[in-house]
Amino acid sequence: MFWLFLIGSIGLVLIGIFGLITRSHLIKLLLSLNILETGINLTMIVLGYQNGGKVPIIHSLLDLTKPINFVDPLPQALVLTSIVIGLGTTALALILIVNYYYKTGKLSLERSENEKENIDE
């Protein structure tokens, strides 16, 4: 189960990287980034997960005298933060891309003709 998750999440990371390398369309780049992010978040969860672990909440039904196999709660908290940040970034990126589209009429970062430099003597 652990390995399946791990392989799956690494697969997502690789897909994201593949997208980042090969695409020039900005929206697709952003999607790849999100896939990458999901992959990494998943990795974090997987690494924090214990097989057969319990929810790390102390309540009256638990016998605190015995060792309890809790799932580590911290990665999940971290992932939550990460997701929020990712959301913010994505939103900002979309705004930028929209602006860029209005400005240039393009959705990829091609070199435009009007910014040629006058270099040669």
Binding site: L20, L33, A93, L96, Y100, S112
Partner: peptide, 12 residues
């Protein structure tokens, strides 16, 4: 345009 480009690249 340059700024947007730079910003997008930086962001990604």
């Amino acid at each position: 345009e340059q700024a947007l480009k730079g910003s997008i690249k930086y962001l990604i």
